[in-house]
């Protein structure tokens, strides 16, 4: 009989960890709150830097775990420490006893309504990065109506102590550039502006993306954080920022404003951490045993982490971490 490992969460971290655990000879059990696998990535359209279709990736990943047991629409009702392992009670009434639990609860997209000055949910022509990805997928959003001018606001809810988040969400800079290019391809006549504080393009080929956006797609980068958005009489918006490179205030009217909502720790992660008294780090994400050497282990025996529950992560980072977590679980279980 194969040993069961409970994986809490059903995003790409959970799927990849399950795949690795299967190949290592375990029986992973995925407990996912929603009714589908793939998490945030499944809602995205294309992934930088090679414009990989997100749904192809998720589909391919899911097909690799057909042997795993998956409980969708299920939450963890309680998680209790036993002498040698954990008792996991699921919301469907099932009780699973296992020696190792992987927490892969991921992140929540920052609720852009909290930045009241940007008017998300109030002004008609303001949307988030996720809304735009969904429009790429479905082509269905009344806000996108042949825009002549589009703005992207970086760092919405990220690097924002007032919003309670000091962290950089890592992926928004390159996502904004990716989305700006995708919009320019669809609306070649549109003027597109990115409002940034710094451009944090650390990953493979990210900087190339930036140069392409400037040179081939004529995207304008304005160094200054948007401070205020208002609706204009024609139903568009007017945004204000400082053009910090000239030291002057700047305003521009836009037909569409896209807010790059950042990552915050999933609200469910803290409650699960609370059940086993795992720590929350000073940034609000779950605390790893060590932030340099041992990100996937917690300070509780048998509890492991993978993905954005411990901090903001890119897709490749999350996948690597999931593999690392599977290996750490294997090493832990074989003693």
């Amino acid at each position: 009989m194969k040993e069961t490992v409970v994986i809490i969460g059903g995003g790409i971290a959970a799927i990849e960890a399950a795949r690795q655990l299967l190949s290592l000879g375990y029986s992973p059990l995925i407990v996912e709150r929603s009714n589908s696998l793939g998490g945030h990535v499944a809602q995205w359209h294309r992934l930088f830097p090679d414009m990989t279709p997100a749904q192809d990736l998720v589909r391919q990943m899911i097909s690799s775990i057909s042997q795993a047991e998956i409980c969708l629409g299920t939450e963890v009702a309680s998680l209790n420490r036993l002498k040698d392992g954990y008792s996991v009670v699921l919301s469907n009434g099932r009780n699973v006893v296992c020696r190792a639990v992987l927490i892969a609860t991921g992140f929540d997209l920052f609720d852009a309504r909290k930045k009241e000055e940007y008017g998300y949910g109030i002004y008609n022509q303001v949307m988030t990065n996720r809304d735009l990805e969904q429009w790429f997928n479905t082509g269905n959003d009344p806000r996108v109506r042949n825009p002549k001018s589009i703005g992207f606001v970086h760092c919405v809810g990220s690097r924002d102590l007032k919003a309670g988040n000091s962290q950089c969400s890592k992926v928004c800079c390159v996502t904004a550039i990716k989305q700006a290019i995708e919009m320019k391809e669809r609306f070649p006549a549109a003027q597109i502006y990115c409002f940034y504080m710094d451009l944090r393009l650390f990953g493979k080929k990210y900087e190339d993306f930036y140069i392409n956006a400037q040179k081939d797609f004529d995207i304008h980068f304005i160094r200054g954080r948007v401070s205020q958005v208002d609706e204009t009489i024609d139903g568009g918006v007017v945004v204000k920022a400082e053009d910090t490179l000239s030291g002057k205030p700047l305003k521009v009217s836009l037909d569409l404003l896209v807010l790059m909502s950042g990552m915050v720790c999933n609200a469910g992660s803290a409650s699960i951490a609370g059940m086993i008294r795992a720590d929350v780090d000073t940034d609000g994400f779950l605390r790893s045993k060590d932030n340099v050497y041992n990100i996937v282990e917690s300070n509780r025996p048998g509890i492991f982490f993978a993905g954005a529950c411990t901090g903001t992560k890119t897709v490749p980072e999350t996948i690597s971490e999931a593999r690392s977590a599977a290996l750490s679980i294997h090493n832990y279980l074989k003693g």
Binding site: Y193, D243, S246, K248, P249, L250, K251, V252, S253
Partner: peptide
């Protein structure tokens, strides 16, 4: 006089 840059 306003120093605002009006991109419009």
């Amino acid at each position: 006089k306003s120093s605002t840059v009006n991109l419009d």
